[in-house]
Simulated scan of single mutants.
Amino acid sequence: MFVGHETVAFALVALAAARYGLGRERALALGVAAGCFAAVPDVDMAYAPLGLLTVHSADALAAANAFWGASTEVHRAVTHSLVVAPLAAAVFALAAARDRPVRVAAAAGALALPVGALAVSGVLAGAVMALYVLAGVAIALLARRRLALGPRALAATALVGLLTHPFGDLLTGTPPEFLYPLPWHLLAARPTPFGDPTLDLLAAFALELACLWAGVYAYHRVTATPLREHLHGRAAAGAAYALAALVITPPTLDVSYHFVFSVVAVGAVGVVEPTKRRLPDLPSAAVTGLAAVTVAGVGYTLAYLLL
């Protein structure tokens, strides 16, 4: 799950802001900030490319395994903690304050987080936490300048983004360490709702699609734009992807590249327009492409179940 983290946070905040009458522009600004903050926990993936240095062959699968293997060294630990999130959200918001004493306090907090991670989990955890703090502070500063958000709004949106992110990872990979640095674990292993590795992957894929649709719905609801204006019938072409169940190896969470890349490629139908326009309409391309991928996913699932 990658983009879904951001769209869920965007949807929650934008819809809540609109519900309480903050206005379209303000609601969208708050939603965008929450979505950006929701991306921050995945900065721990910055360590993963180092795994490629251990690969001594041109085999793509070996490279992919090395990449994801290195990512597990620190992924979904220090940056995915529900305990750390409130402290980090406060630091991010205070770092964007205009008062110097407040920024000094934020600097102290920004230093304490990586030092604490270093003391508890070692050098790698400390380095990842430092990157986490830098990313969050950078987003807070950018949101203050570009979106005109104050410390309270930044703290609230950062908290939503950081707290919702770990739950989106429940069905994929190693469970997040929700309570880091405490010694307790909410989940010892990834949930397997179906027991069938392919259906478990398809469930995770469906969750990602649902999160993306939540963001699409929120945007159209807040802007009062009918969704049908951006949804075109060519999305139905995604149904042809059901035939893939006959030719590709059933994907699993361990080996899913052939499925993920091919089903996502179906979204290209959103860009192909039967007009002479040089550039496609971006909202229409996004919505139609997402609909095509959704149809493709449903078609493949039905075909897999029937085979």
Rank of each mutant, 00 (worst) to 15 (best):
A112L: 15
P176N: 10
R228L: 14
P191Q: 00
T294G: 03
G168R: 01
Y300F: 13
G69K: 00
P274A: 15
T223P: 05
E6Q: 13
V84S: 08
G270L: 03
A16F: 14
A106T: 06
A204T: 00
S284F: 07
G69S: 06
V269A: 08
V115S: 12
V74C: 10
A77H: 11
V43R: 06
L87S: 04
P41M: 14
H5E: 07
V272W: 12
L149P: 07
A11Y: 05
D42Y: 09
A203E: 03
L231N: 02
M1F: 07
V133P: 05
A127L: 15
A105W: 15
H75D: 04
A156T: 12
V222C: 07
L186R: 06
T7M: 07
V266D: 03
V160Q: 00
L305Q: 10
P176W: 09
E208H: 03
A156N: 06
L202K: 03
A9N: 06
S57C: 05
L209I: 09
S121T: 01
A93C: 13
V287W: 05
R146T: 14
G109N: 10
A148Q: 09
V222P: 02
V293N: 07
M129E: 12
L290I: 00
A93I: 11
P41Q: 11
L212R: 11
